[in-house]
Write a protein that binds this DNA or RNA. Structure first.
Lengths: 235, 235
DNA sequence: ACGCTCTTGTGAACGTTTGCACAAAGTCGG
DNA sequence: CCGACTTTGTGCAAACGTTCACAAGAGCGT
């Protein structure tokens, strides 16, 4: 989902040009699974193994990977380390992405403390909040700054990714301000539909939407009264 | 996978039978926007207005709603209150959904405190944790229970939705246990691919995946060097 | 009652995503 | 060097999703 305002569909071909959105959304999963294999010192994996670990069909996985190039060896599989590198590069994780988190409430704190955050590619440039009670406190090794300092922080650290973890009421204002300071990628945790100019990429994470989708399927299951037969509801 | 369980769609009619997954995922957004209109005492909305507020194409919105039935009035639009009811019913929100949250760390706390949680349809049956330091503390009006009481809690409250907010390492074990106690819908915040038997519905929310997708597009934009208008129509 | 305006609901065209099935390309034992 | 075996990469068709465009209805003023 996540409307992307960026169409920028260039020429065809193999490069990083025409990778389908659906594939992009799966690459991070593959990457995570690959790291798990690497940690077990497994040198190569077949598409079948990788697909099983990632929870997808192996043909789909192969097609996905084929969009990045021809990095496998027929009869053998994929070199784990090499593939980690290629997928990382494709996703842009070989460079450093400073991130600013706006909102230091429960959620902002959870995000700042989230380990996988700083681990690979992403670095918290600052945590901002508007509450004077919270400004100045420490979260995950970062002093919380006043939201008024957004402009300086974004400029100084060359931040291009902003995370909105504020209440719904202030999310749009924060978003507008982030965009005005030059942030072009926004991850929104507030339960509102953000309005952004084209050229800005917004993705949303919304607990209640996910719960409602689960409720729909749960209801259907209980109403339709599925007997016992095999039927995968999963995604 | 995920083959439609409803094989022979009996009546090709409108029932809750054949609603596309993509539509389901948007209904909660429409619902939220509808509540916003209702709060402003706006009695009817056109598909155009609703679509704009939800950030989608109006034809798509109309087609989505048409899957639930014919609830609009030509020349007028949709009655807000009536549509709220119909969408809620379709999503199964007219009944109560007890939810158990496993993991009372930063994230679990943020989730429990999330207002929109209890608001409509969902109710926290219990917050569980395994850390003796945390068990017994209060979170959002709920005493944190030991994870050992999962079985009792699930049975007593007839919980069918579980939220996993534990570290990655224990997520699968928690998941297995939830499934064993009869939970059939799981919302997973841990950065792992969960393995579940068929018949169990899993949705995942993953910060780092979203960030990586943003990074990909951000990288592409900076590499391709989009001029200034970044508009559609890639020539 | 009539014609004008507005808006829904949907057929049809188009685009994207998935999955099968298999040729191409590699490894390995002898 | 060969033949058996394994696994990738991809052409193709089907399934799914989006968008356009417009006929069918519904309201309203005269």
């Amino acid at each position: 989902m996540s409307r992307r305002a960026v169409s920028a569909n260039g020429r065809s071909g193999h490069g990083s040009q025409g990778i389908p959105e659906a594939t992009i959304a799966r690459l991070p999963v593959y990457l995570r699974v690959l790291y798990a294999f690497a940690e077990q010192d497994i040198p190569t994996v077949s598409s079948e193994e990788l697909a099983a670990a990632a929870g997808v069909n192996s043909a789909k996985l192969r097609k996905d990977l084929s969009h990045l190039g021809s990095y496998g060896t027929r009869g053998v599989g994929y070199d784990v380390e090499y593939l980690v590198y290629q997928v990382s590069r494709e996703l842009g994780l070989t460079q450093d992405w400073p991130v600013v988190i706006v909102g230091a409430g429960n959620l902002g704190r959870a995000l700042a403390n989230y380990g996988g955050f700083a681990s690979r590619g992403f670095r918290i440039a600052a945590v901002l909040d508007s509450d004077p009670e919270v400004v100045g406190t420490q979260i995950a090794g970062h002093g919380v700054l006043d939201v008024e300092q957004m402009e300086q922080v974004v400029a100084r650290h060359r931040v291009s990714i902003g995370v909105i973890a504020t209440p719904a009421g202030t999310a749009q204002a924060v978003c507008d301000r982030l965009v005005a300071t030059g942030v072009t990628s926004i991850l929104n945790f507030a339960p509102v539909v953000l309005n952004v100019p084209s050229g800005v990429d917004v993705r949303k994470v919304d607990l209640s939407i996910e719960l409602q989708i689960l409720a729909f399927h749960a209801q259907r299951r209980s109403v339709v009264r599925v007997p016992q037969d095999a039927q995968a509801v999963g995604r």
